[in-house]
Structure formats: C-alpha cells, structure tokens
Amino acid sequence: MTELPTQTDRKLGLVIDLDTCVGCHACVIACKGWNTENYGAPLADADAYGAQPVGSFLNRVHSYEIQPPDNAPAQLIHFPKSCLHCEDAPCVTVCPTGASYKRVEDGIVLVNESDCIGCGLCAWACPYGAREMDPSEKVMKKCTLCVDRIYNENLPEEDREPACVRTCPAGARHFGDFADPDSNVSTLVAERGGIELMPEQGTKPVNRYLPPRPKDVEIDVLGPLLTPVAQEPRGFLGWLDKALERL
C-alpha cells in the first residue's frame, strides 16, 4: 500500500560520521556483495569489462571539497549516500502499483520486486538518488537496511546489522532506532548535531550525518610564544638578495 503510515513503531536508520569516514568504499562493496547474494534480484553490472561499465548500487560514496571562508585550508569530505528511509517518503506515494511501501513496524522503505513495473517514477521522486533501476532485472533497487540480516537468527548476533555498518573499518557507520531517544544513534545525533539532508524537500529523512569536527581551532594557543621565523634573508643569502636588488 502506497499510503504512508502516520507513525511507525520504530524508526530504524543509519548515522554516518563524516568526520571518521575515510572514503575506502568498503561499505559500497559489502552492500553490493550482500545484496547480490541474498534478498531480491541480484545487483547487476552491465558491460562490466567493456568500455562503459554500468551497474546498480544501493550505496555510493561521493567526495566533496569544502573551502572555508578566509582562505583556511580546504577540507575533503567523503560522503556515503544510501536510502534515508524518509518518514514522508515521496518515492512510496508516487508508486502506481503498491510495490513500494514503508513498514509500520520499523519504518524501513522496501520494494516488492514482483509488483514493480519498472516505471522509474519513484527514482524521479527521490531527491537523494537512493533508487536505481537494475540494468538486467529492470526493477527498482534500493537499500533494504539489510532487512534480511538485522532480524536473521541464523546469523551470529554481531552480524545482525546492515552489511555496510558491519564492514566499516573506521566505525563511521552506526545503525539503530531513532524513535528511542536513548539509542546509540539518537545519542550520537544529539551530541554531534546530526544533519538532515535537503530538509527543504520536506521528506523528513531518518538517516542523519554527523558533520566533521572543527579543525585547526586550537593550534594557535602556543603560536604567539614561538620564536618568529625569519622573514628577511640574512647572511650570505641576505647579501645576495640585496646585491641582486641593486642590479
């Protein structure tokens, strides 16, 4: 049913720490691996060894350069992006077949692939580019929050979290329930000022991003006590400089 639930019992989602993400793309590969071998149609690659390889991914890592004002050093931010499991998910309501739905029990947005006609309208409705049409199966693929891992009692308990979170070597990804104010993710968001992406789109995304911690703020505390570095050349170089000036 494409009518969105007014409220979900839990709000499962991810917190992504942009301060710790090193941009290794391990989450991309873990996601592609798990979701190719398990629930739903495999994530295909077309022309994989050809001139123009193209494939479906549920998670992609962008990299951005941020230039602070007053010419401070630029920062490079690696930015993993997957479905944000929005509370007001526009991708769900536009679906003509009911293939897209948001679960009442945990808020996960899923696609029932056998009902998907591959019209692509949900991908158009998503501002984040979270949905991709599979090049082989021609059905819409999206992050399932590894719904086949998190409740899977055949897996050891430490593996019952999304593949991207489990694999992240930097600990930059966190999985939890945003409806619980005391959960790990809620605490992180409160402490670090978690960001909502494109709030002006009115989608109320569940996933949050932790902004990079301020850099180079305390480095100048001892600065004034340091001996100034010579600005003017002295000795032989100073003589050479002056001599060349006079020429």
Partner: peptide
C-alpha cells in the same frame, strides 16, 4: 556541509555514469 564553507564536487562515486 554549507556551514563549513563552499561545497564543490571533488570526485563522483564511480568514474563511469550510472542510472
């Protein structure tokens, strides 16, 4: 990330195109 400074795209996720 606009609070930190001017954001520009440094590198796309993959060198090729996608859907």
């Amino acid at each position: 990330l606009g609070d930190i400074g001017t954001v520009t795209a440094f590198e796309p996720p993959h060198t090729g195109g996608n859907y």
